[in-house]
Design a protein around this nucleic acid. Structure first.
Lengths: 113, 113
DNA sequence: ATAATTAATCGTAATTTTACGATTGATATG
DNA sequence: CATATCAATCGTAAAATTACGATTAATTAT
């Protein structure tokens, strides 16, 4: 039988390529960039403060936070009725190392066209 | 009454935040990560070779190349009937600098939660 | 216990992304 | 010229993203 199977073999991309893309995707929205910057520059990382700071609806911010949590870049701890978010330094470093290594490809490469 | 000043989408994010997100978004798909790696590691950066290398449809690769071109990370030069793609080193460096600076926020940062 | 506060989730709509096949336009080659 | 080749674009469909208001769950305060 002629199998026009659904493509997308999981060996199409390496785990590293997928990881790089995943981290990059997490940074691929200005709101998330701003959230991360805010979490770095302030100690009060309560969700409500983030909502005020960014200027998007509370539910939207929650979605972005969820996205960042998914990659492990941030983590939240319940504090009474609010939730305190902060950078997960381990994940941040992991992302940093992975992406910087990716960026530094150009140090090996010479000219092309 | 507390009047929540509505920020317009234009000044909601800084130009830097938008730039970071834009570059990150470009890297936010494993196919584009792989394309960039391929362009670095080989001298033959012809579109057809990229299609063979990645294993996606030609039109899909074209779309990804367009996306990368949009950010300026790559450029293509027509060579006869084919097109030779290569990294735009200036843009690559610009992205590198911008993102590495963003990554290095953690060097200033103390602990949070 | 009741009310208030906070953040997650739900439901939904608009937009964007991703993928493919088909077509088109450009350039070689016969 | 006719034809083959290559890559961009078109048309389209499925999936994901982004945004919002409304609701819910959990906790704190009255």
């Amino acid at each position: 039988m002629k199998t026009k199977l659904k493509t997308t073999p999981e060996n199409r991309f390496t785990e590293e390529q997928n990881q790089i893309a995943l981290f990059a995707k997490a940074l691929g929205h200005p709101a998330r960039v701003k959230i991360l910057q805010y979490l770095f520059e302030t100690k009060s990382c309560v969700c409500g403060d983030i909502v005020d700071e960014i200027g998007l609806a509370q539910s939207t911010i929650s979605q972005h936070l969820k996205e960042l949590k998914k990659t492990g870049l941030i983590q939240g701890t319940v504090e009474g009725t609010s939730v305190c978010y902060c950078i997960n330094n381990e994940s941040w470093t992991k992302m940093k190392d992975l992406l910087v290594e990716f960026f530094d490809q150009d140090l090996i490469k010479t000219d092309c066209c």
